[in-house]
Every structure is written in structure tokens, then in C-alpha cells.
Computed example of a mutant assay.
Amino acid sequence: MEISPKAEAAPAADPWPGYFADRGHPGARRIGAGVEGVVYRLGDGQVAKVWTGRPPTELTRQVYADIAQHRLPFATPEIFQVHEHEGVVVTYERELPGVPMRGDSAHEDYERTLPVHHRNALLAVLRGLASVPGTDAMRRLTVQGDDRPLWQGHDRFQDALAGLVMRAAARHGAALAVHVPDFSAGVERTLNALRSLPDAPVTTIHGDLVPPNIHTDAAGRPVAVLDFGFYTTAGDPAFEAAVTAAVWDMYGPYAEEHTAELTRFFAQELGYAPAALTAYQAVYALTTYDLFGMDDSDGHFRWCAEQLRRNTMFSTQLS
């Protein structure tokens, strides 16, 4: 749940602080609100979220627990209890420390030179998540926009992604093809590349490591990773690195340079094959392009089309 700092003051008639006080949390204080509900700080490292939108499922809760049992160098979400009061779901969760690494690139221009502490923070997060084995609960998750668990009917992550690409292209691929030359051939090349990738370790994939989803401390070290769910699954950690390189700066004036630099950096530091990273970046664009809009009036659609136009999977002259 994303919260807004503009909503720090509670309305005079807010009944929830009293509700929490009656349950042993007399210092409960409203700290923010978002489209999904309101968040209250309870103290002792715990918050309560009062859900007006769709609350987390039991499967999501299990995924959080699967990750939290590992001793990572940063905190991750964990749901301790789920209550219901007069038809409203209330979750009691770990309070995540730190502040966002930086604002979203749609609202904040990034400098041309990648800060070293940002590169190091991303590397630490990627290494941490890659140390957590993928679980059955993660395999049962559905990627946003799809109609079935990603791994359903598949034993290999790469084959599961190939199935997802085919379903996503069938949804509204004609709209994307208007903006991406050689579209059908590019999709086929991407599928062939996926199927030819060797088996890889199956680990935790967050899938949306944009800067606001990584919290850092005053020294720039990552202390929390939040907002799992958009593309969370179990899979090849190289996929996480590829997507992170692409989404760290999506809309800034140096976005293309930053993506290329981070892709090279992750390949070198983590030992991932550049060709695999290229294929996975094409997959991400092919499977998320229509989640917010289906033409170039939508920023994410435009970004996906641009990603594909410069990806070698969609070039008529492959390098």
C-alpha cells in the first residue's frame, strides 16, 4: 500500500485510534493514506493498515512469510495478523524503515552520472533477493494483467515466461505492433531466445524495483524493500537484474544511458549473460505494455514500445 505524507493528520471523527487503543495500542497515530486504505503507526516496529481497497490475499501473506524467514540485510513486508471489524479488513504488519531511495523518474529528473551509492544499493538488493529460494507460493502468484498463475503448466521459468509473452501479445499486440516495426518477428525471436536459455537457479523475484520501492538509510544503504506483487514470482535472478536496470530510470532525459550502464554493471558484477538480460528486458516490455493504457497517450505504453524498438530482439540487424 502506497501512502501519502499529505494525509498525516487524522480527521477529528476518525474512530480507528480508539479501536487500536482498545486493543492494546494507545499511541496509535495515523501516518498516511493511499488508494487502498489508511496506515497507522502502532509502535514497537508495527503498523496497522485499514483497507478500503482489495486487501492482501492469504497467498500474498505466505509469500511475505517465505521471504521474511531469511536473514536479509534489509527488511521486507510481513503480515502478523489479519482482523476484520464491521466488514473492514485490518492487517497488522512490520513497519519498514528508511526513506525511498529517490522519487519516481516520471516526477524527478535524474542526473546523468549514476550515483555510486545507488548502484551499490541496487546490487545489494539484487544479491539479497537472489539468496532467497523460490517457493511454491511464489510460483502460484499471477503476474498483473494475466489470467493464471505464471508457473501453471510449466516446470521451467523460461518456458513459463514464453507462455506469458504469447498470452500478452494475443491480448492487444496489434496496438503495440503499430509502434514497433518487425513486431511479430521480434516476438518470435524473443520466444526462441527464452526457450534456448539454460536452466538457472529459481529465486525470489520482486519484479518492480523502482527507486521508491527501495528504502535507504542516511548512508544510502538499503534497509527495506516494499510493494511486492506487480510482477512478483519465483524465477531466474537474471530476470530481476534485467528489469531493475530498465526501470530504475524510465522517463528521465538519460534513461537510455542509465539502462545500458546498469545492464552492463549487473552483467559484470553478478555474472549474468548480456544476451539473457536483453531477452528478459524484451519480455518485461511485452508483458506489461497494456496494463495502464493501450496507445501512446499512456506513458508506460510509450516506454514499452521504445524499449522494444531499441532491443536487439526487435532489430532487423541483430548484433
Rank of each mutant, 00 (worst) to 15 (best):
D155S: 13
I31Q: 05
H25W: 14
A246F: 06
Q268I: 02
G27M: 05
H300D: 02
P201V: 02
F74R: 07
D147E: 15
G24H: 11
L176F: 14
A21Q: 12
D159F: 01
L59A: 09
G173S: 13
G153M: 06
A33Q: 03
A168D: 03
A33C: 00
L123E: 06
D298W: 04
H179C: 03
F266E: 00
P222Q: 15
I3C: 05
P11E: 09
A275T: 09
A21H: 15
D44A: 07
V143A: 05
D298L: 08
S315D: 15
R94V: 12
D136K: 05
A130F: 14
V178A: 08
A75M: 08
N213E: 07
W51Q: 02
G235C: 07
D236N: 06
W248P: 02
P181I: 07
R61M: 06
S4N: 11
G87A: 03
S105H: 10
G87E: 06
E257W: 11
G24V: 07
A193V: 07
L141P: 01
A219S: 15
V50L: 00
A241W: 06
L72D: 03
V39H: 04
L59H: 08
L194Y: 09
S196Y: 00
P222C: 09
L277E: 00
T259I: 03
Y251G: 14
Y289L: 01
A267W: 01
F74S: 01
V180Y: 06
F228W: 10
H25D: 05
V143L: 14
W303P: 02
R119N: 06
W248Q: 11
Q46K: 15
R167K: 14
Q317S: 15
F265R: 00
Q281C: 05
Q281N: 13
A218V: 11
I67M: 08
A276S: 07
D199Q: 10
V89I: 05
Q69Y: 00
F183V: 02
L262S: 00
T316Q: 14
A260T: 13
S184N: 11
H172M: 13
I3Y: 12
